[in-house]
Amino acid sequence: MIKNRKIDIKGFVIEGLTLSSALFIIAIIIFMLVVIINGGKSAFSWEFLSAFPKEGMTKGGIFPAIYGTALLVIIMSIAAVPFGVITAIYLTEYAKENSFIARTIRFAVRTLAVIPSIIFGLFGLGFFIKFVGVKMDGLFLGGELKWGQPNILWASLTMALLTLPVVIVSVEEALKTIPRELREASLALGATKWQTIKKVVIPGSMSGIMTGTILAVSRGAGEVAPILFTGAAYYLATLPHALSDQFMVLGYHIYVMTTQSANVDQTLPIQFGTTCVLLLLTFTLNIFAIILRYRIRKKKIN
C-alpha cells in the first residue's frame, strides 16, 4: 500500500485550480500593463510630457496635469507625512499596548483606510471648502471669495487625509523593527524619551518613513474621486501659481478625456498616453516601496 503511490487526482486538480487562479490574476495584471503601455507608447514624446494641451485638448501634451499631480502629492506629503509619523510614534512609543486609546486610534486609522475615497471628496467639500474656506474668506477677506471654492490646497489636504493611514501603517511597522534594546541603551545612558526618539528611533526608521511616503504619494497620484469637486479642473491655460488656484491632474485628465471629450477617437492616443504615464508613475513608486519594505523586513529577521 505504501509502495504504490496513488495518484491523487483530486489533489492535483485542486492544486492546479488554485495555482491557475493565482496565475490568472497575474496574467490580467501583465495584460493590463502591456495593453496600456503598448497603447500609450506611440503618444510618448518629449512634447507630450512638456507641452500644454492644444486644439481643444485633441493635441499637445499633458504637462499641466503632470505638474498639477506633482504639486498635489508634494503638498499632500507635507501635510500627511509629519502627522502620520507622529501618530505612528505615539502608537509605538507612548501609548500603552492594548490601552483603550491606542485601540481606538488603531481602529480609527483602519476605518480611514476603508472609507470610500468619494466620501473624502464630500468631506473636503463640506469641511475644507464650505466650512474652513468660507470662514477664512469671511474673516480675512471680508467675504471676498478666495478660499471658499475648490483649489489645490483643499484638494491636497483632502488627499492627505486619505493617505494618512498608509503613512501611519508603514511607519508603525518600521518603528516596531527598532529593537527594544536600543531604546533601553539610550535610556540607560540618561537620555530622555524624546531624545531617544529623536536620536535613535527616528533615524533607525527612516527607510520605513520613506516607504510610507512613497506609498502615500503613489496612492495620492492615482486617486481621482477625492479631488473631483475639491480642486481638480478640466482644462487650465496656466499652471497653478497659488494655493488658491485650481489645477489639472493626471487621473482626472484621463477621466474627462475618456468620458467627456468631444472626439474620443481623436484623443485616443492622448488618453492611452496619459494613462500610461500615470500607471508607470504609480507602478515605479510601488516597486520602490516594495523593495524598501522588503529590506526593512529582512533587517527585522536578522
Binding site: L182, E184, A188, L189, G190
Partner: peptide
C-alpha cells in the same frame, strides 16, 4: 540613569 549606568546582555551599539 546617568548615575546608574547599565550594560546589557546583548551588546546593543
Amino acid at each position: 540613569r546617568k548615575k546608574v549606568g547599565m550594560v546589557f546582555q546583548k551588546s546593543n551599539p
